[in-house]
Design a protein around this nucleic acid. Structure first.
Lengths: 350, 350
DNA sequence: CGTCATTTCTGGATCGTTCCATTCCATAGG
DNA sequence: CCTATGGAATGGAACGATCCAGAAATGACG
């Protein structure tokens, strides 16, 4: 059946001939039009099956207003957090009959520019972008000017009014600080994250505001920047502990940094959750399995991904190329890395 | 500049008019033909820039023999191991000027079928498939019959001669067993993995062969199947330890299972690496950061991904729709979870 | 049985490229 | 001054769908 070499595709014209109708009718059947008699529809579908017809979206898109492919540009697919975001987005697009198209930029703005160009050439109907670090402000201008719906995920692009979907960074930071204060900590550090990161800026802002509200000195709090990696976390910890009046707790830029901080603490003979409280951000899957299980700010990544996809879908359908932002809810997932109240602690730093 | 609403794309015809040449010449410039005078080329390029022209690959693919989009179907993108595979593949395709197209099937053969259909409709020039569990043997027949180059990644599809790229499962298992035997273990279990998994079958085969070579009884070794998750690992461990003559070491289906086994050991008061030796497979990024750091069979996933991409690329270029398999090298990464030689151990099971 | 409204179906133009066969052009050779 | 020659540029026919305006079939009804 349907052996057919590579170069002889079956087209609707052949289907039409086989079913004894015109190609227009076949086209109608293909898109499930109501105005074709059931008996005809069945005949066409039979021919489609018999001849092994494969729809050619490329050809279709040539004539249609917009294609059904949508793009998602992810800044680091090998990061589980991002991967989960991608999965959430993809699911929604698939369900809506769109073909999602994932590209990974590996945090390279250059690669990102190439990918964006490719996506445009491919004629994407919409795009979700989790921007690479160091993305120039005008990176998406061409797309936006051309009327392609774009939604930013996680990372806001300053200086442009592009809709964005992300967690409530400020609130998350506040929740973490409030918890630490409640546990009796007065010297709290903010650890890690790239200095130029918008996300870090927001979390840091929430962190400082919460500190101020608790009657602590935001300016006095140490907040060393460092790459959002385990090593970065350990490194930021060292910087913080080298201070004259070292902190007793840390709110970390994200869970990976928090893991690194825990590692660093152990290396110094301090037990995370006993000698020092650690709170992360994101609630990645490993957080619960870490040792000690990480207290962190839980973000519904997959939900955010779905939401981002919904926004793009709505923009595509309505033709509007803008939407309001969506700031996703966050909550504190209390586990063991932030420990019991400070007063009950038995051991201090070595 | 180049404001232009969504519906008035600039085409090569307009570029041609602006540059005072024919559309054929513009086409020539676009594909970097040598046979167009530099002065003309510059004029055309200037027009392209000025009018904000965007190449339409859909239209081009309509006429060309094959498109420049290639697909990759991944069975679980949220699995870091797979994500890394995807990144490796993507990198190679991008470098070769192809547009990779990642789809996640979440281990669903139904979703996989949809995705394959979509890819065909999109006119992919080639495809890399990391098949979902339970994929029917004929899932790729249509593609193959149509002459689309397909390479399987990691998971072989039995009953079909489709080229595949993956690690040397048998050798990996052998290396693990040899190590454990060297450490003095005589009762070694194989833990986890789905019973119907081809990968598990291969690893199990290598495991048994190595056991036999070491003069141990392959048939006597316990090998409970379990989902390749942490919980699955813990569960498989329980099954193994419930045996009349429980094992003192385990070779695990993969690292995730191994993590679960370590967790389960701790819950029973056994310290992985001291009371019981554990070896994983894959060497995921977390393996080195785990507690204890996991001894495992290291696989160069990214390399395998690149290799798979190269194979597809070659098939596309040569027009041949077949290639030899590529079995990637593996090696034992010795860390702490397999412990010191058994004779030196101080403590047994509780 | 003719008329008219509906439902079905159809032809042909069109989308933006590529590709092939030609034509055009400038220069060199005779 | 004419003709090969070969490099540059071109025109028009594809590619495989969609879409629109209108034709044909169907049915309702006096």
């Amino acid at each position: 059946m349907a052996m057919g070499g590579p170069r002889d595709r079956v087209t609707i014209v052949e289907i039409a001939a086989a079913a004894g109708v015109s190609k227009s009718t076949v086209s109608l059947v293909l898109k499930g039009s109501e105005s074709v008699r059931p008996s005809t529809r069945d005949r066409v579908n039979a021919a489609i099956r018999d001849l092994g017809y494969v729809y050619n979206r490329g050809a279709a898109n040539l004539r249609r207003a917009h294609s059904n492919v949508v793009g998602m540009i992810i800044h680091d697919l090998s990061n589980p957090f991002c991967a989960e975001l991608a999965v959430g987005i993809e699911r929604s697009f698939q369900a809506a009959g769109y073909v999602p198209f994932i590209a990974n930029t590996a945090e390279s703005p250059v690669r990102q520019a190439e990918v964006i160009k490719l996506m445009r050439e491919q004629g994407v109907a919409g795009l979700i972008v989790s921007a690479a670090r160091g993305t120039p402000d005008d990176a998406l201008d061409g797309l936006v000017a051309a009327g392609v719906p774009v939604v930013l995920a996680m990372r806001r692009l300053k200086g442009r009014r592009i809709p964005m979907v992300g967690p409530d960074n400020r609130l998350g930071a506040r929740l973490a600080v409030e918890r630490l204060v409640e546990l009796g900590h007065r010297r709290i550090a903010f650890l890690g994250g790239h200095a130029d990161s918008v996300v870090r800026a927001e979390r840091l802002e929430g962190f400082r505001a919460a500190l101020a509200d608790a009657g602590l000195d935001p300016a006095g709090a140490v907040a060393p920047a460092a790459p959002p990696t385990r090593d970065g976390g350990a490194q930021a910890l060292e910087t913080a502990l080298a201070q004259r009046n070292p902190p007793t707790a840390a709110f970390c830029f994200n869970d990976i940094v928090a893991f690194g901080v825990c590692l660093g603490l152990r290396r110094r003979g301090i037990e995370p959750g006993r000698g020092f409280a650690v709170i992360g951000f994101d609630d990645v899957q490993d957080a619960v399995h870490a040792d000690p299980p990480l207290t962190t700010i839980a973000v519904d990544v997959m939900g955010l991904g779905e939401r981002a996809a919904q926004s793009v879908l709505r923009m595509i359908e309505t033709g509007r190329n803008t939407t309001e932002d969506h700031i996703g809810a966050v909550h504190l997932a209390v586990r063991e890395s932030c420990g019991r109240p400070l007063a009950e602690r038995t051991e201090r730093r070595a």
